[in-house]
Design a protein around this nucleic acid. Structure first.
Lengths: 198, 198
DNA sequence: CGCGAATCTGACCGATCGGTCAACATCTGA
DNA sequence: TCAGATGTTGACCGATCGGTCAGATTCGCG
């Protein structure tokens, strides 16, 4: 059974992603969770602490992915890249609300520790892709992949087949695979065998 | 010489893009423009009207691009697509702050007419790319291109060579050209002849 | 049972929000 | 010159914000 704190984390995640951190009041979160505003501030000492509790699980998992794949392999672009893309897409889908928050609202959420942690991790990954040939374009490719995926996975007015996450995952792996391929060769590096049927 | 209304539009555009529409108060805009808050509300009857005045020029230009290129050509993917990509990238760069606002803050700005107009235009373009083969992946490619470019052009933590917009433009045309190419063939459809030197 | 810890709440606080208004300054053309 | 339009301002308004606090309620456990 979900505890009150769990409910509040879940509701806050949805509201922060849909209406924005600044656009969501503690009163709204309390109402949707069926408790009073004072209860929210009992479980989380401030709105910032609530945001941190909402984003931290996603950032922890991102840390894990970077550790497993090994960032060194991303530079020269071997199998580590294709493996990274698959794990990265699964991460983006599973934590799409959290990713949307710290990708699309980071610029307006300065001086909040958990947001600065997210920015640091994004910049870290970006640097490894950058150290390949064609520095500027490589950076652009990574930035477009990250920002584009976050935009697409949360409320873009590009009506997607919402329940069919499998097809979305397949398409994202292909598109991001192309974007993050080490050179301009090797299209569709992820074969259909990795995913369910088209 | 810039009028007070011009100053307010310029300052509001920067603030809305940097701190978000909800995160920017009329007092901040007034202070940065060197006038009182009441003066802001004299020139623009409400905060929403100010937002509309800030976003409308970009949306008008987007209308113009769609009219010139001709949306019909985008479906079958001929020369119209490559021409569209170049015009689109120039539009994204020139109006990057406005694009960032109505791409990354649209979900939290519901029921605001100018934002709904922006969503309608984005959805319109998306539909033309969708009617090609591979519906889902085509949509994903367009969504990633738009959201990614908007993310990259405004404050992404992917430190770019800021003054060198020419290199950025070149890279974006290549990357978006790849993403929006009608099939999985024809990499780097935009040759170097279209841009300045590398 | 009973008692302390954990949970929850309504009332309240200062600050800031977008917006209104009457008064004042400045400019313009007859 | 002077009257009306235009521009600007400080004072003020109700509403809502994040956050505090004392007290009520419920829970776990000897």
């Amino acid at each position: 059974m979900p505890t009150t704190a769990d409910d509040l984390r879940r509701v806050a995640l949805e509201e922060f992603a849909a209406a924005g951190y600044l656009g969501t009041s503690l009163q709204q979160i309390a109402d949707r969770a069926g408790v009073s505003k004072a209860t929210v501030l009992y479980h989380f000492t401030s709105k910032e602490v609530l945001l941190e509790a909402v984003l931290s699980p996603a950032l922890d998992q991102l840390d894990g992915i970077l550790g497993q794949v090994g960032l060194a392999g991303l530079q020269r672009g071997g199998d580590a890249r294709t493996e990274f893309v698959e794990r990265f897409v699964d991460f983006l889908i599973e934590h799409r609300s959290a990713v949307y928050i710290f990708v699309n609202q980071a610029t307006s959420l300065v001086d909040i520790p958990v947001v600065e942690r997210a920015n640091a991790e994004i910049e870290l990954i970006s640097r490894y892709f950058e150290e390949n040939a064609g520095s500027v374009e490589e950076k652009v490719r990574f930035g477009v992949a990250l920002g584009g995926a976050a935009y697409l996975l949360a409320g873009a007015p590009v009506s997607l087949p919402e329940p069919d996450l499998g097809a979305l995952r397949h398409a994202l792996i292909n598109v991001l695979g192309d974007l993050l391929a080490p050179s301009s060769a090797a299209h569709s590096v992820v074969s259909a065998s990795h995913t369910t049927a088209d």
